[in-house]
Design a protein around this nucleic acid. Structure first.
Ligand code: MN
Ligand code: MN
Ligand code: MN
Ligand code: MN
Lengths: 218, 218
DNA sequence: ATCAAAATTTAGATAGGTCTAAAAATAAAT
DNA sequence: ATTTATTTTTAGACCTATCTAAATTTTGAT
């Protein structure tokens, strides 16, 4: 069975949104992500459910089935491999890459993907740090690094801490950082090694004492 | 204005078929090429005509407008650039390449095409000898000529073909002619324009139908 | 010039994807 | 517990691309 571009985009975004919480993905959230209307989402979800790619109960949101998940992960694999190619071999910079990868990810050829993967040297992460699943859909073990060593510009997430005092835990809680919290490392200031991060649309400063005690995904 | 994959494929095949004769491309010829029905072709042609991409009068066949031609040539450019990439960099062999290029040619990004072209070293011909037009739509000067126009007596080599049917490919294989094969044009017979060539120490006759479909080095 | 065959176009139907407006269900407030 | 607001679904419509079957035009033979 083969999917349309549209179906593949739905599956991919259901996958990504479902990581954010453990409940089903809501119709509105999906509509916003896909820049379409809620009614269109409902229609499409029904079609995907008929194909057994998602589980769906009215008003309860959607989740991917195993089959749907496999397809979603494969799209992500292709997207990230193409981004590696565009950035590292064609010399693309920054933004433009994503839109092109958004189209290339739908090119349908297992042979092509495997050869591209080989050509690129079997990368495990794309240039934004996004992990690239293998052809079985297995993601690489996320390398962990301390926040004070991470390259500026990375999107990352909290993977662990090396300091377990109540004071530190309370501090993190107040900042809104917990295990799994996603954020973006915007800047590091050389004079005191403090960092500036963006988390939940807020910009926050962290001292080096804090940063050096947080493990983040690389 | 942007075209669908389908529209682009129509334009490309109208372009290619229109090279074969100087009359408009017939509905049936297009239907056969595109593996669809004549009625579907009529529908699509009307739409392309409404967009001013083709000129069309009922029952008279279609021709491309300047605008349509530009798009068609650009698709051919992309197709051939991708084939160079797939064959020379990803290590694809023979057949598989074409189908993948058939999809890749529709990826919509001028930036991508220019960067790919640069990455490949601005090739002028694809690995099958097909000329690659530049971004302005200009084809390279053919340092190639069809075998039925080559001067008698020349030593030359197979540079490409203009007929890609299985029957023709098989025929060439049987004759021992493939891309790059060297041979010597010994004689041309005026009464049927057949030619006699010497290849691997054997003397072979080729009908005009065969000769006119083989590109050779000039 | 007439008739038959082939090519082409039209009519009507189906399926995918989307939208607006209205109805129904759920969640939040009072 | 009611009422109100929000979310989600349904109903009905539209556009693209395709098909089959029937009608029309052109081509080619007699
Ligand atoms: Mn991306
Ligand atoms: Mn996409
Ligand atoms: Mn090709
Ligand atoms: Mn194509």
């Amino acid at each position: 069975m083969s999917q349309s571009f549209t179906e593949e985009n739905y599956l991919k975004h259901i996958y990504k949104l479902s990581k954010k919480s453990d409940k089903g993905v809501s119709t509105n959230a999906l509509a916003e992500r896909l820049e379409t209307k809620a009614s269109s989402v409902t229609d499409m979800i029904k079609k995907l459910a008929a194909k057994k790619l998602v589980d769906y109960k009215k008003y309860q949101g959607v989740t991917l089935t195993k089959k749907g998940q496999k397809i979603a992960v494969d799209i992500i694999r292709k997207h990230r491999l193409w981004e590696v190619f565009l950035l590292e071999h064609l010399g693309f910079g920054g933004e433009e890459v994503h839109d092109v990868a958004e189209e290339l990810e739908h090119i349908n050829s297992a042979e092509l993907v495997e050869r591209l993967d080989k050509f690129l040297g079997y990368p495990k992460y794309d240039p934004h740090g996004g992990p690239i699943p293998d052809s079985e859909g297995i993601f690489p073990e996320p390398k962990r690094v301390k926040l004070d060593e991470l390259e500026v510009g990375r999107k990352t997430k909290v993977m662990g801490i090396t300091e377990h005092s109540d004071a530190f835990l309370l501090h993190l809680k107040k900042l809104g950082m917990e295990l799994g919290t996603d954020f973006h490392l915007k800047e590091r200031f050389d004079f005191d090694r403090s960092v500036e991060i963006e988390l939940n649309n807020k910009t926050i400063q962290l001292s080096h004492d804090v940063a050096k005690n947080i493990f983040v995904a690389h």
